[in-house]
Design a binder for these strands. Structure first.
Lengths: 204, 204
DNA sequence: CGTAAAATCCCCAATTATAGGGATTGTTTA
DNA sequence: TAAACAATCCCTATAATTGGGGATTTTACG
């Protein structure tokens, strides 16, 4: 069974919330954005009725001089991870209270990765299984290096160019590509390009 | 017939672009977001090939101390309206150069209204021509055979397979591919795949 | 009718990619 | 600590593509 992350978003920008929803849903079926609030007060009135795994919230909504911690304001359980969604400058004191920070300038893939990593620290026994073999591999099976190589391939680089970009030998690039093909099951450059596009790794 | 606004977006945040696209398309069928760029330089490399009615651009991308006007940088025709998409503070000098300003905190409905009003001031005769034969925006320079070959390439076929599919020799396939590359200027398989996707020749 | 483009085919040489087979050095983790 | 994985590198050989140069026949259009 696929574990899905139940996510709540709190951000004053409706546009941004829409963008996050669209992007995450396109990237993977693992994300369910179930609740969307424009303000903290709007969220508070529903806080008792919802139970998200992850809250993505704009840190600018919190009073920088406030004594209360973020967690207490959101009155969440220990199991809920809180991620800051930042697009303006926010004080370090605030930021340090979050389990992770995503930026408006992150790519959808980067955001997805951060969410997964943050959620990965959730309760210990129930969350390991969803990698396994599952059928179709998604981007999380690919290592960082493999993702980088995949992106370059999808951008049309030759192995030699990729080697130059990342300062590794062509042999290494080929090795990574072999692993990418093995993991994804996709052999052709065009297929990998579509894969990269669908997973938000590249833009047109 | 409904007039559709052909829109280009230039903003570093992929999330935000996704949000704008989603929101506008949900609000009305009048908006066609046809081009999406993460930076001015990215836009510039396509500026000659596209013809938007409206450019929505993040004003923060422009050098506040620059002497050039926004319009000259975007080198657009008089017919194109330029709208600022702001979510950080931007100098008034810059902002005054735009035909309109939308904010990240505007609702989709507000944004739609602003775009319509701005576009309403467009000159009346210029907007009839761009449909031509509709269908595929840029594919018209490719012959039928070339399109077929392109589709097969984008699907991941080798030249040998393509030859088999269309009952022609590998030499012919190569010739067609040479012509495709010459006409489109796209050399890589991944680039051609994206091209095919954008032109609706293949689906993921 | 002539011309241009499309569609087909061929050759050669060089470059790239794929498919096997390895190896080593780390790090993480059960 | 052993096992698994990531990341790096190497070899051989074959397959595929690219880039340059042709050619012929058919079709479309003014």
């Amino acid at each position: 069974m696929a574990v899905k992350f139940r996510i709540a978003i709190i951000d004053p920008s409706q546009i941004l919330r829409a963008g996050l929803e669209t992007s995450l849903s396109q990237i993977s079926g693992k994300f369910q954005i179930l609740w969307s609030f424009s303000s903290l007060s709007h969220y508070s009135s529903f806080a008792d009725e919802i139970d998200p795994d992850i809250i993505i919230v704009n840190p600018a909504l919190f009073d920088p001089s406030g004594a209360e911690t973020i967690k207490s304001i959101l009155s969440n359980t220990e199991d809920t991870r809180i991620i800051a969604f930042s697009y303006t400058h926010t004080s370090d004191i605030l930021i340090r209270q979050f389990d992770s920070v995503i930026s408006i300038y992150d790519t959808p893939a980067e955001i997805a990765l951060k969410i997964e990593k943050t959620a990965g620290s959730l309760s210990s026994d129930s969350d390991k299984k969803y990698q396994k073999q599952s059928g179709h591999p998604e981007s999380y099976d690919l290592s960082d290096r493999e993702l980088e190589v995949l992106v370059s391939v999808a951008k049309g680089c030759t192995n030699k160019e990729i080697a130059g970009i990342h300062n590794i030998s062509v042999h290494t690039v080929i090795s990574h590509r072999k692993n990418i093909v093995r993991k994804t099951g996709i052999k052709s450059v065009s297929g990998l390009t579509v894969y990269a596009l669908l997973n938000g790794l590249i833009e047109q």
